[in-house]
Amino acid sequence: MKKRTWLAMILAAMLILAVGCGQGNDQAANESGFKVGMVTDTGGLNDESFNQTTWDGLERAKDELGADIKALESKQDSDYVPNLTKFAREGRNLTWAVGFKHEKAVPEVAQQFPDVQFGIVDSNLGGNIPANVTAVTFKEEEGSFLVGAAAGLTTKTNKVGFIGGINSELIEKFEAGFIAGVKAVNPKAEVISAYAGSFSDVTKGRTLSAGMYNQGADIIYHAAGGVGKGLFDEVKTREAGKFWAIGVDMDQSRLAPEHTLTSMVKKVDVAVFDITKSLKDKDLKSGEHHVFGLQDDAVGLAENTKNINPDVLTKVNEYKEKIISGDIVVPTKVADVK
């Protein structure tokens, strides 16, 4: 009995410890009648990634459109359906489902509530988009191409690294774009790739990046969520100006200000705000797939470019123009990289 109580107490204590520090979502007491909801994936609101940037987009909608906004965090995959349902039943004008993990839940709920609009970030639902759903994806390969070009021009060792989270179609777009970018500017350079098999294992991220740096890579780009934190932890221990990390999704330079070459930002907030606004303005055509790329200024280098050589930046910008104009088509599969 004693042993059992003891174990139980440890477990409960672990539960409490597992609770991260977070902040409450601002409550908008808006009376505009335009209500927008958002359901996170299991990453939660403060994931330093698309959940967080989607919320930024909604906050902008609150400020500029007077929308009433609210978010629900999902603890497990099985929470997506009830969370989406709650917003739909409440009569939200639009509910955003963040992340491709929602791709099964969104059509299911959308069918039940045909009069309510839904948006999904990072998935095109395999092409079958119900009439009341708007799918939003990004050309991550284009942004990744640009940071690849920056890396290819900056590397001294002609060796750069890529760390992915879990091997999937989405993450492969980052990898393919990055490799294409590196090769485009520096055909001699070699790209080492590795997948962590996780989006949260910080230690794994650190081990992988230490290995790559030790193999001679001097720049590593990650598309691995929380795993990326390990990359920044590792690069900070190495000589500044010689070893670099490239962040993803948002400007991650604050994690290692002297070691962050740049970040491939994915402006989910821009996309989410645009779609939300067009719904408010009643000119949204739902049931469609919207792709945001360089030309929408929805992907690209972080604004903060202090660590990039100006010549490199100029070169990178030239590539940016070529992609927008269609002269360069960036591959989305590693196999298609020439």
């Binding site: 995959d77 099964k104 996780s198």
Partner: peptide
Amino acid sequence: SIEAAFTG
């Protein structure tokens, strides 16, 4: 689906 972590 591919899971990054245990379901709990």
